[in-house]
Each structure stands twice: as C-alpha cells, then as structure tokens.
Design a protein around this nucleic acid. Sequence first.
RNA 1: GCUGCUGUAGCUCAGUGGUAGAGCGCGUCAUUGGUAAUGACGAGGUCGGGAGUUCAAUUCUCCCUAGCAGCACCA
Length: 665
Amino acid sequence: MIKITLPDGSAREVASGTTPAQIAADIGPGLAKAALAVRIDGEVRDIMRPLEVDTKLALITSRDEDEALELARHDFAHVLAEAVQKLYPGTQITFGPSTDDGFYYDFAPSGDPFTDDDLPKIEEEMRRIIKADKPLRREVWERDDLIALWKKNGETFKAEWAAELPENDEISVYWSGDDWMDMCRGPHLPSTGKLDPQAFQLTRVSGAYWRGDQRNPQLSRIYGTGWLNKKQLKAHLVRLEEAAKRDHRKLGQEMDLFHFQPEAQGSVFWHSQGYVMWRELEAYMRRKLDGADYKEVKTPQIMDARQWEASGHWGKYRENMFVVPDEVPSVDDDAPVISADADMMALKPMNCPAHVLIFRQGIKSYRDLPMRMAEFGCCHRNEPHGALHGLLRVRQFTQDDAHIFCREDQIVDEVRHFCDLLDGIYKDLGFESYAIKLALRPEKRFGTEEMWDKAEQNLRDAVHEAGRAGEEYQWEELPGEGAFYSPKLEFHLTDAIGRTWQCGTIQLDYVLPERLDASYIGEDGARHRPVMLHRAILGTFERFLGIMIEHHAGRMPTWLAPTQAVVATIVTDANDYASDVTEKLKAAGIRVSADLRNEKINYKVREHSLAKVPNILVVGMREAEEGKVALRKLGQKEQMFLSVDEAVAMLTDEALAPDLKEQNT
RNA sequence: GCUGCUGUAGCUCAGUGGUAGAGCGCGUCAUUGGUAAUGACGAGGUCGGGAGUUCAAUUCUCCCUAGCAGCACCA
C-alpha cells in the first residue's frame, strides 16, 4: 500500500500500481471524466501512469488552463503526426512541440514538402483520429530496441535522436491505440477523444532546419493553432484579425506615411506625413539626451576597410556590410567600371568605431569621464532577404546610438542612470510595461573569462541597484545570448495587444577600447583603458516608429500625429472663416489643414476619421457668426463647442511633447 | 540564404488559352448638404520581368525578381 496526499490535505491508502485515473474515479464520476492529467510533486504526468511510492497528488482539469492547454497542444501535435503518416506513408516524423498559441510538427517527407493545399485533408484525418478516441498509452523502452525499431521503420531522424538522449533518461514512447506510436517524454492526455475536434486549425506550412541548424537538412513543418474549445479558438482568430488591422505596413500605406519599393529593398521612403512623426520623435530624444548630459556627434557614413579590420568587424561581420570600391569608375566603354585592385571602403554597419576615433582625438583625462557620446547614426547592414520585415527589420536605419566611455568604477552608476532615462522615455512614449533581460556570454566571443565574469556582474549589480531586477520587469538572465564582445541588458517593450519587442539595450564592452587603443590619463598620471557602454533606447527610429504605429493602431498621440487637426467646412460660405481659424492654429504651431472642398460634412468627417486625424474642427455659418468651432475628437461622437481662442489653447496644450508638458505644469 | 504561397488600374480584389472587369480613389459636371460614403459622366492596365509550348499566352511550363508566412540570421 502507498499513501496519496491530495491538495486538500486528505490522504488515502491505495495499492501500489493504482493510477491517478482510478483515484479520480474513486472521488467521483464527474472528476473522473474531467481529469486530464495529474501533478505529482510539481511534475505533470499522465493520468494512466501507475503510482508506486507515497506522493502528493493534484488532479489537473481544463480549469487548470495553462497545464491543460500545454497538454492539449502537445497532443494535437501527436495527432497531426499520426494523421500525416497515415495519409502520406513514408513520411518520417521528427519532433513536434507545443507553441504559444498551438503546435507544430516537423516532417521529412518522402517527396515534395507539404503545401497549404494538403492541410484540409490532414485536418480531416486529425478529426477522425480525435473522434476515434484512441487511448494514449505510455511504454518504457530499452534504448537499443527502440533505435533498432526506428531504423527498421526507416525513421532515421528518430533513430538519431534516440541515440543522443541523455544516458540516464528513461526512454518512453506513447501509443495511440495499437497502430501508431511516437517517442516522447510526455505527458499526454489519456486519449485523443479528450481533444476538441473544433478547437484547432492547421495554419501554415514552412521549411525548418533539423535541430534548428542551417547546415542540416530542411524539414517540412506544419503549424497549427490549438485550444481547449471552439470558443477559445475563435477568440484567438479574432485577435489575429485585430493584429492584422494594426499592421504598420498596412497603416503606413493607408496613412501615406512611408513606402518600400524593390529598387531599394529594405530601405524606407519616408513620406512627408511619416517623416513628421520621425522629426517629432527625434526632437524629443534630442531634448532628453541633452538633458542627460550626452554630447551629440555626427560621423562618416563610409570608412576605409582597414578601419573595419582594426575594429574586428571586417573579420566577423563583413558578410553583412555594404562594401564600396574607393575608386573613380571608368568611363571607358571597354574597360571594367571598377578595376580589380580598387581599395575597399564600407558603409558603416554601426557607429562605435567612429566614436572611439573621436574619443582618441586629443588626450583624455579621467576628469573627462564619463563621456557620453550620442549620435542619431544612420547605418547600413546587408540583412538576408528573408529577414526584412517592414520597418521592423530594414537595411538602412538610424539608431539613437550613444557610447559612454567611463572608468570601471563608474559602470554601475552609468548603467543605473541609463535605466532611469530609458524608463522615463518609455513611459513618455506610452509604454508602461517592459521587461529587462541580461544576455550572458555566447559561445563565440572575444576576451577572457575573467573579463566576462566582471562585465556580467557589473550589469547584474546595476539592475539590482536600480531596483529593476524584479518580477515587475520579468527580470531574467539569458545564457549564451550576449554579443561577441560583451554581455548586454535587453529592454523588451510590451505593446497594446501584448506583443513584446526588444528595443533598448546597453552593452558593457572591454574589447573595442582595447582593439582601437582608446586611453585616458588617470589621477596617477598613467595611461588607462576606459570601458565602453554601447546603448540605445529606441533601438532604431524605423523600428520604434513601426512599433508605435502598431501600438496606437495608427491613432498617434496628438504630439506625434502627422496632421493634428483639420478645419472642415459645412458650406462654402464658411470658407473665409475656416481659413482664419486655420491660420490661427497654424500660428500656434499646430499641424492643421483646411478642408474647404465642396463635399458633405458627413463625407469629410468620415474621411478625416479614417485618416486618424485626432481633431476635426467643423465650421458652418453658425460657428462663423458666433466665432466658435465645433470640435470632434477622433473616435468620439459628441462634440465640443468652443471659441477659437479656447480651441487654440486646448490644441496647443495637447500638441506638446510629453517632456514639454511636464515642464508646463 | 532555405521552404511554401503570391504578384491583374493609385488601393482592395474578381476573371479568362482568342490581348481585361468591379468597388474605392482620381477628373469633369450638377449639388451648399450640420458630424463616418450626394448623384451622373469620364480618364486610368505591355495582367512583375525574361524564355519556352501553342495558330494564339495575362492564363500552361521553366528561369529570374519582388512581396508575404515561417526557418536560419539579428554582430
């Protein structure tokens, strides 16, 4: 007999080998039906797996949503694999986990990869397997037997995987009924019938590399979204639609903010309306940096390749750099435009070496430190075609970059100050919540272990001292994620619909000052090496504006809105008055335009609302006679009836950037 | 770069082996209308580029290119 303790503290004695399912049935038929899995000493396990020792046990039902979803998605993945092997014999199975919203499974097809057209048929087969309510049964195998079986069945990927599982691991397989099985750690639901056949959808196919490595064969991945019930699935699909509506690429076109075209792929053509937002954001950032005692610089776009060799980028980063021959092109028709022996230059992929070169001009004293050197630096990186994505991943971008040269004993203070500056800016810009992560040393890196220990500890200390190493900031350390020259703090924004974006970063670099021989004279009169903090808050203007557009669904706060107000007339007799009002707003610095077209007011209101203009000032003869305006805020039905002066005062205040607003009050 | 899908008017998209269609937008005219679409008429397209099959290709095939969704990459 063994002793089972339940969450309410009650205990019962059962025979060894009893399953949690039996215990659930013992407690009541309702629970027996609802029970999906069981938590034993913190570990989720199958409900059919016999108990052999005294344990604390908690039954999991669909009310334990996180666990239930995880189980269901994992099971969907298995059902998917079973369906595919049934429909396409000869397809090898490899690996299929759950994801944030569903599941996927990677296959090695015997012929061509899967296409979208295959999905409905596979879904149908999956539903059939679910309806058949096949029991899922766990079985422990000897490694060699299993490898032999995989090999016999032509499952070479599974055989490879089985051979590499850790020595001491118990190797389990799960049977679906008696006719299909997969190697899996589990846990699983007791049977396929626990899944809701209406709660999943196969969404797309994709290539994916075996074990995530580009050098390995590419497999054919099938993605699905999976939930506990139809209602959840539907809600998820609605969320996806909502996200698609606020896609910055779509809004960028609709609002005439920017465009891309093949002649400059991955580089943005900012239209005047979009560039207004850029200029406002840049002006805001410049004020914040000035206030935080940064010194702004501007450095060359193109530098000699030898400089990039010295910084180490030519060796490690060249494949992402745009290289330019340092030669006057030949105009002779027969000659090649560029001779084979031209010297090479490169467009800067980052600003740091140039900033070190500025630092190196003249002799620096410890009194000059910390030196905070900022640049809105336009960089070019030759990103792989498949990586480009609207404003979020581009080839030409402008970073709100800065490098802080300081002594080692100043690092913690500087990082802490940076955290405070960033915090204020994110909040000003409408992002209340963000996460902080510490990315630790990667496998391939410059520098000594001692240096990395020191650098990582400094960043860790700084975040703790800034009081931001807690739950509120989802503080965690990410092993292996650092840059090759330094560990980094990453700042991840959460937007209005819960997605996260890495924007800010600060990196503690001992390497570059060494490589480029930066030094200062210390109190002792000797030369010392400064450390260098690479940091950005927005990351890049392109990316950040893309995130802002999606965050606000295009309805930018007034200070950033391309057009802040439109004065729209009802009748042409009010045109002169409308022009007067427009001029007054313009004089107050408001970005305003007059809409005097011979159109109905309904039409004008609709059009400017769709254009997401935050303020529509409607004027007809009534307003003209009384010297007033009817102000309609974007998205609101009711209007305010104000004198022109009141409207000017109100909009002027509303149009102030957040930092200027604070000063005013 | 890899896998799959897509490319038709300024935008969103329909369509066909016999050289094209809608809605919106744009232009003209009428209309002066009080808060999310006034009506009529009109002008817009080498159907992404190249090659092939065919009497005939926007349509079928191949290559290229760009975009989209993933993968890999993001120093």
